[in-house]
């Protein structure tokens, strides 16, 4: 079935609110998922993979383990990026705006592909950004996303790692700078590396336009699953509550 971008945002906000995300977080989480889906990067698939991790408000809060003038080290204690990365990136943004450059390492964080939308937010603040992470188990893949300061869309590349690599699949490395253009992508090409795929800013823009024009396809099963999750924000109806609706 087809849904609109606004409809998706509204539903996802209620989903994450129902999971206990605070005000401010649930809007951000919805925005991260929506950005991937609208821009053709299977936000729904990422969300389905993320669902076992996202109801994680009972996990310890993200912890700032170390801070230097141009470096930050966080432990997310197994939280989803949806429920911790926006505030981490904002602290990094503040540092980048003050120091010109910051190197951030985020440990024990799931669903790191959602960082793409946060890079766009950084670019809007005049910050160039580059993110690197690995993901999966046999095969392990690696991913790079980067954006120029002021740009509307990032570039993204992914490929499979060689068999002899030692994976580090719960870490995100992030570089932010107001002084350096951090535009990077994985070496190689689809003929040289297994699973190599690259998405240009122009491709992201076209995907976004297509979603806006025609809506987005979502499976009925996922739609129903999300709606069921969103019911957590609703209050049981009663005769007393009906009087609070004002009608006759």
């Amino acid at each position: 079935m087809l849904i609109s971008s606004n409809e998706l945002t509204s539903l996802l906000k209620r989903v994450f609110e129902g999971m206990g995300y605070p005000v401010g977080y649930y809007e951000d989480a919805a925005g991260l998922v929506k950005w991937l889906q609208v821009h053709g990067e299977q936000g729904f698939g990422e969300l389905q993979r993320a669902l076992p991790f996202v109801a994680d408000s009972q996990r310890p809060a993200p912890q700032l383990l170390a801070e230097e003038s141009q470096a930050l080290l966080f432990d997310c204690h197994g939280r989803s990026a949806l429920n911790c990365l926006p505030s981490i990136v904002e602290l990094a943004e503040a540092k980048a705006l003050g120091q010109g450059c910051v190197n951030v390492k985020v440990r024990n964080c799931h669903n790191r592909k959602f960082v793409l939308k946060l890079l766009v937010d950084c670019a809007r603040q005049g910050i160039s950004g580059l993110a690197y992470w690995q993901n999966g188990k046999q095969p392990v893949s690696e991913h790079v996303a980067s954006i120029a300061a002021g740009a509307l869309h990032p570039s993204y590349s992914e490929a499979l790692l060689g068999d002899d690599s030692v994976p580090d699949t719960q870490t995100l490395t992030l570089l932010l700078s107001t002084r350096i253009d951090l535009l990077g992508q994985l070496h190689g090409s689809s003929s040289q590396r297994n699973g190599y795929r690259q998405v240009s800013p122009e491709q992201f823009a076209r995907a976004g336009q297509a979603s806006l024009e025609s809506g987005m396809d979502i499976s009925i099963e996922l739609w129903q699953q999300l709606n069921q999750l969103a019911e957590a924000v609703l209050v049981e109806s009663s005769e007393q509550s009906r009087s609070g609706a004002g009608g006759r």
């Binding site: 209050v235 609070g244 609706a245």
Partner: peptide, 23 residues
């Protein structure tokens, strides 16, 4: 202010008389 399970209708509640303030 809350959303009712009845078609998600927005409603006003009185916290002395009704449950649902946590939502």
């Amino acid at each position: 202010w809350y959303r009712s399970e009845e078609k998600q209708e927005p409603r006003l509640g009185n916290c002395n008389l009704e449950n649902g303030r946590d939502k």
